[in-house]
């Protein structure tokens, strides 16, 4: 591992290996989290896409839910929820009881409709990358409201797609399904990662002068 930063992926259900592979491409070996004990020493935890109703029940049952809330409040654990993960983080869910309820955002589940309404696109998220980032929406929720201290990272037509606070990140799309590492790199930086990958980046200009 290039960096001492310790990153976990909640591995109770959903798209776990996709996040693991993206982190591995950045030189970070992530730990799969299925028990409260596995949270020890983590700087950051990814809550992957999956089904939020299933994940919520397993978070309660395994005790990982209360433990990660505690680690978030007391140890500065940084969280990133993608799709279902973002639903788990939200303080408010339209028409439903919230789950972890720790990000000042309101989400609306299955806001686009069924799988037939899943889609992909591309957008510029200046805070995260200077280049457009591919976006994959699968039965995605929408963020329909935010409150301070949440900062909007990406707003599309009539909804918000990415939001952050100092200690949490929520994306309703799936960066782990796209061939792009920008959001994973950004999350790792939020967790205190010093990229060893910065060295090749700095050497680029010498190769690119033509």
């Amino acid at each position: 591992m290039d960096s001492p930063v310790q990153i976990g992926i909640l591995a109770l259900q959903g798209g776990v290996s996709e996040h693991r592979q993206h982190l591995a491409a950045l030189g970070v070996a992530a730990r799969e989290v299925r028990t409260p004990e596995a949270l020890a020493g983590l700087h950051g935890l990814i809550l992957p896409g999956g089904e939020s109703t299933c994940l919520s029940r397993l978070l309660r049952l395994t005790g990982v839910g209360p433990a990660l809330l505690q680690a978030y409040r007391e140890n500065g654990l940084v969280l990133w929820g993608t799709c279902a993960g973002a639903i788990l983080l939200a303080e408010e869910i339209v028409g439903e009881t919230p789950h972890l309820g720790l990000m000042p955002i309101t989400v609306s589940r299955n806001a686009f409709g069924s799988q037939l309404d899943s889609f992909q696109g591309e957008a510029l998220v200046p805070t995260v990358s200077p280049k457009p980032i591919p976006l994959v929406f699968i039965r995605a929720p929408q963020i329909v409201g935010t409150h301070p201290p949440a900062r909007v990272l990406l707003e599309l037509d009539s909804y918000i797609a990415a939001v952050e606070t100092d200690q949490a990140l929520a994306t309703v799309f799936h960066p782990e399904l796209a061939d792009d590492l920008s959001f994973h790199r950004y999350f790792l930086r939020k967790c205190g990662w010093q990229p060893a990958g910065a060295a090749p980046d700095r050497s680029r200009p010498f190769l690119a002068v033509r």
Partner: peptide, 13 residues
């Protein structure tokens, strides 16, 4: 690809 990816979100379920 999107259809394959929905199935990926069902993994472990």
């Amino acid at each position: 690809q999107l259809n394959v990816q929905l199935a990926q979100m069902l993994k472990g379920g």
